[in-house]
Design a protein around this nucleic acid. Structure first.
Lengths: 137, 137
DNA sequence: CTTTCATATACGTCAATGCGTATATATAAG
DNA sequence: CTTATATATACGCATTGACGTATATGAAAG
């Protein structure tokens, strides 16, 4: 039978212990976002973004969905009430950080006029989610 | 003038991303505790405990007080409302974890009969704190 | 099938971290 | 001063993690 194994708390916190990953989570918020937006807004090599997204996936904090060429990422609440509460609180906290506000503003701007960004030509826009999918709430 | 610099969020989460450090924080709770109790309850080499306590100190999550030969550690709430809330929530979460409950039970036991533990002969007992010292609440 | 585009992974390097062992430091006791 | 006790730090080693660069994969277009 399926034994309810203890959630990996350490891995969860480790995933939150990196600036780039926090920026990614902040951009996702309650939206499902295409990787190309992350690359555009965070800058730097695309592989860097992809590696951090993989880390978040391995920690069970985000999930990915393929849509033809594009990959969409969204936050998924961990299967643990404690982790879920902390993640939500962290996301709220990030909204007050200056860097994070700037990132979000740039995302909004990019979404309004994607044609101005070479990387975003024809890119699928973010999809507003009703509520962050949560397995415990 | 003293500029309010941004709190190091990443360092905060990194400090929480280790099992031994979470066990230490769980044992402290709202008490000020002598290092010898940590050594007794967590087991393993004393240097390991000391190193993790140093890490928590460097992250600003605990503070140390010397009382003759003994060092007492307590949790100090970070100078940031967001981090404080998350730390409190984490401490509450830990109380529900099995390993953490066992640790706390062992601490209680050790405090009731310190004479049974060679390491704790004459050790100063934990000191209940009125409330976790918090700089932002 | 070949090319193109979006994304993921492999590789090599370097810094950070965790651990056990040994040693240093600080205080108290004799 | 010497010794004993409590705690912290230094050292060497193994692992993890972050990075840039290069390459692989997967899907669509020609």
């Amino acid at each position: 039978m399926a034994v309810k194994q203890t959630y990996n708390v350490e891995r969860f916190f480790q995933a939150l212990g990196d600036h780039t990953r926090l920026r990614l989570l902040n951009l996702m918020g309650d939206q499902e976002i295409c990787v190309c937006y992350f690359v555009e807004i965070l800058g730097g090599p695309q592989s860097k973004i992809s590696r951090h997204l993989a880390y978040l996936r391995s920690a069970g904090i985000v999930s990915a969905r393929r849509e033809s060429k594009w990959m969409h990422y969204r936050i998924v609440m961990p299967p643990h009430i404690g982790a879920t509460q902390i993640l939500k609180q962290t996301l709220g906290w990030l909204k007050e950080e200056k860097t994070m506000q700037t990132d979000r503003a740039r995302l909004t701007k990019a979404c309004c006029s994607p044609s101005k960004y070479v990387l975003l030509e024809g890119a699928p826009p973010p999809i507003k989610l009703e509520a962050p999918s949560c397995e415990v709430c």
